[in-house]
Design a protein around this nucleic acid. Sequence first.
DNA 1: CAGTTAACTAACTCTTAGGTTAAATACAGG
DNA 2: CCTGTATTTAACCTAAGAGTTAGTTAACTG
Lengths: 121, 121
Amino acid sequence: MTAQMTEEWLDAAFAALADPTRRAIVSRLAHGDATVSELAAPFAMSLPGISKHLKVLERSGLISRGRDAQFRPCHLEVGALDQTLDWISTHRQIWNERFDKLDAHLRGLRTGPDRRKGSGS
Amino acid sequence: MTAQMTEEWLDAAFAALADPTRRAIVSRLAHGDATVSELAAPFAMSLPGISKHLKVLERSGLISRGRDAQFRPCHLEVGALDQTLDWISTHRQIWNERFDKLDAHLRGLRTGPDRRKGSGS
DNA sequence: CAGTTAACTAACTCTTAGGTTAAATACAGG
DNA sequence: CCTGTATTTAACCTAAGAGTTAGTTAACTG
């Protein structure tokens, strides 16, 4: 629950989303839960390959897996998706605010009195 | 400009954001442009290390670099941030819509008539 | 219990990524 | 033109990631 933990979690979440196969899996799971075989079907990849991807997604918290006989239904965890969303939109926002604040300044300083610093701290 | 290209771009963007150093750099750049040395200062890492991270960020489109004498001011590209935002929020939305649609269904089918398929395709 | 289906683990290969140090480039100023 | 400052390139190392095949566990089905 610390900031540190969030940082580590973001590592895992963004890394998980960096792979096209995993994004496709997330994409598919957004439409509803599915078993491993169902998820594997669209890909030219071995089952263990998919299994590994699912493990990555699970460790990142983006999906969870239940148990139903020999099937392991996969479930999208939207909350995790939201947290990655939060990180990005927060930083987008910071940018907007900064831009807004400096707007007046920039109008007068276009020629560049000191070109290598925006603000000290 | 194709969906394919977007896919590849997302690979790069999410991978770029998967590293804590690079996220910190993005974070810092959200407050304003900065030079390489300025960006490197907070980290216990060699300059070339930072330089590599910046190259990753640049290739992903998340930042751009200008030129000012021997300084290379780095600039956050908010548009790129927005595109990653779009991917995530789109899929979050898909999930919500699905959930909404199936709401009525689920009310009646709680006992589970066929537990391993949500919908074929 | 034998057989089949679903999924996972293990062990291995190959490639890429993150980091280092040392040397090179680009520019500013005396 | 030589020196200092800012940054990149090159060469190298180690570790992690994505993929494979082969074998294993678990559960249903006859």
